[in-house]
Deep mutational scan, measured.
Amino acid sequence: VTVHVNRYTYHFDNPEEAEKFAREMAKRLNMTVEIHGNTLKVE
């Protein structure tokens, strides 16, 4: 599972951890999480 935050890319083996990380980053940056299959984008 890949998480994109701005120009950074993070890889996770565990989808739940990836989503938790993405949501935490989105909250911190006041952004939203978009899910595209195995890719989560924080925008």
Rank of each mutant, 00 (worst) to 15 (best):
E16V: 13
D13Q: 10
V5D: 02
R23Q: 11
T9H: 08
E19P: 00
L29K: 02
M25H: 04
T32W: 06
E19G: 05
A26F: 02
L29A: 04
H36T: 09
N38W: 03
I35V: 12
K20R: 13
R23E: 11
V3C: 02
G37W: 05
E19Q: 09
H4R: 10
D13Y: 07
Y8E: 14
F12E: 00
M25I: 15
V3N: 02
Y10E: 01
V5T: 04
V1L: 08
R7A: 13
I35C: 07
R7M: 12
R28W: 10
V42T: 04
Y8H: 14
K27I: 13
P15V: 14
L40C: 03
V1T: 09
T39R: 06
E19S: 06
R23G: 04
T9Y: 09
G37T: 05
E19I: 14
T39W: 07
I35K: 13
N6M: 12
G37P: 05
V33H: 01
E24P: 00
Y10S: 01
R28K: 14
K20Y: 09
T32D: 05
K20N: 11
H11A: 05
V42K: 02
T39A: 09
H11V: 10
V3K: 01
A26W: 02
I35Q: 09
L40Y: 12
K41P: 03
F12P: 00
T2V: 12
F21N: 00
N30L: 03
R7H: 14
E43S: 14
R23Y: 14
A26P: 01
K20V: 12
P15W: 15
A18C: 02
G37F: 06
E19D: 07
T2M: 09
T32E: 07
E43I: 15
V3I: 04
V5N: 02
L40M: 13
R7S: 14
N30Q: 07
T2Q: 08
V33G: 01
P15R: 15
L29T: 04
N38G: 07
E34K: 15
H36E: 10
M31D: 02
H36R: 10
N30M: 05
N30P: 01
V3M: 02
N6C: 06
H4Q: 13
E19F: 15
T9D: 05
L29G: 05
D13C: 12
I35F: 12
R28G: 05
K20A: 13
A18D: 00
A22W: 02
V42A: 03
N38Q: 07
N14L: 08
A18T: 00
Y10C: 04
E24M: 11
D13G: 06
L29V: 03
K20D: 11
E19W: 15
M25S: 04
E34Y: 15
P15M: 15
F12A: 00
P15L: 15
V5R: 02
E34G: 07
F12N: 00
T9C: 08
H36D: 12
R28E: 11
K27Q: 13
V1K: 04
N30E: 06
Y8N: 11
L40G: 04
F12V: 00
E17W: 05
R7G: 15
E16W: 12
E34T: 15
E19T: 09
H36M: 12
K27H: 14
L40W: 11
E17G: 03
E43F: 15
K20H: 11
D13H: 08
A26I: 02
R23L: 11
E16L: 11
Y8L: 14
F12C: 05
Y10V: 04
Y8D: 12
E17L: 10
T39I: 14
L29E: 06
Y10N: 00
A22C: 04
H4S: 10
F21I: 01
T2A: 07
V5K: 02
K20E: 13
P15E: 07
D13P: 07
K27W: 09
R23C: 13
V1Q: 04
V42R: 01
N14F: 07
R28T: 08
K41M: 12
Y8R: 11
E34N: 15
E24H: 07
K27Y: 11
T32G: 05
M31Q: 05
F12T: 00
N14I: 07
A22M: 03
F12I: 01
T39L: 11
N38D: 09
A18E: 00
K20T: 10
E43C: 13
M31R: 04
Y8P: 01
L40P: 03
V33Q: 01
Y10M: 03
T32H: 12
E43D: 12
T9M: 10
R7L: 10
M31W: 05
V5W: 07
T2E: 08
V33A: 02
R28V: 10
A26D: 02
P15S: 11
E34C: 08
V3A: 01
A18K: 00
L29P: 07
E34R: 15
G37R: 04
V5G: 03
T9V: 14
H11W: 14
E17D: 12
G37L: 06
T39Y: 09
A26K: 03
T2P: 02
E19Y: 15
T39E: 10
V1N: 05
F21K: 00
A26E: 04
A26V: 02
E24N: 06
N6T: 07
A22Y: 02
L29W: 08
K20P: 01
A22F: 03
N14V: 07
A22H: 01
K41E: 05
N38Y: 04
F21T: 00
V42N: 03
Y10F: 12
E16T: 10
N14A: 06
K41T: 14
K20M: 11
N14Q: 06
N14H: 08
V5Y: 08
E24L: 08
E19H: 13
K20S: 11
V5S: 03
N14G: 07
V42G: 04
R28Y: 09
M25L: 14
N14Y: 06
G37K: 06
M31A: 14
V3D: 01
K41S: 11
M31Y: 06
R23D: 08
R28D: 08
N30V: 02
Y8S: 09
A22S: 02
K27N: 13
K20F: 08
T9S: 09
A18P: 00
H4G: 02
V1M: 11
Y10P: 00
N6P: 03
L29F: 12
E17R: 06
V3S: 01
A22T: 02
R28P: 03
D13R: 06
K27C: 08
P15Q: 13
N30W: 04
A22D: 00
K41V: 15
T39H: 12
I35N: 06
A22E: 01
N6V: 07
V42P: 04
K27V: 11
Y8G: 06
K27A: 13
L40A: 03
M31T: 14
Y8A: 10
V5L: 08
K20Q: 12
P15N: 09
H36Q: 11
Y10D: 00
T39G: 06
E19M: 15
V5C: 09
L29C: 12
M25A: 08
V33K: 00
H11Q: 07
V42W: 03
E17F: 05
R28Q: 13
E24V: 06
K41F: 15
E16K: 11
I35H: 10
V1Y: 15
L40H: 04
K27F: 13
M25K: 03
G37Y: 10
V3W: 00
L29Q: 05
T2Y: 11
A26C: 08
T39S: 10
F21P: 00
E24Q: 07
G37M: 05
E34A: 14
N38F: 04
H11R: 06
H11S: 06
L29I: 03
K41D: 04
T9A: 09
E43W: 13
N30R: 02
A22P: 00
Y10A: 02
V33L: 09
A26G: 04
E43L: 15
E24R: 08
A18S: 01
R28I: 13
Y8W: 12
E19V: 11
Y10R: 02
V42Y: 03
K41G: 04
H4Y: 09
E34F: 15
T2K: 08
T39M: 13
L40D: 03
I35R: 13
R7I: 09
E17I: 08
E24I: 07
D13E: 12
E34V: 15
F21S: 00
A22V: 04
N14W: 05
M25E: 12
M25D: 01
E17S: 08
V3G: 01
V3F: 00
A18N: 00
Y8F: 13
V1W: 15
N6I: 10
H11F: 13
Y10G: 00
F12L: 01
F12S: 00
H4D: 04
P15D: 05
L40R: 01
R7K: 14
T9W: 08
N30T: 03
H11D: 04
A18Y: 01
T2G: 02
Y8T: 12
N38V: 05
M25Q: 08
F12K: 00
M31N: 03
T9F: 08
P15T: 11
L29N: 05
T2L: 10
H36A: 10
R23M: 09
T39C: 11
A26H: 02
T2I: 12
L40E: 03
N30I: 02
N38C: 05
F21G: 00
V42S: 04
K27G: 11
N6K: 07
V1E: 01
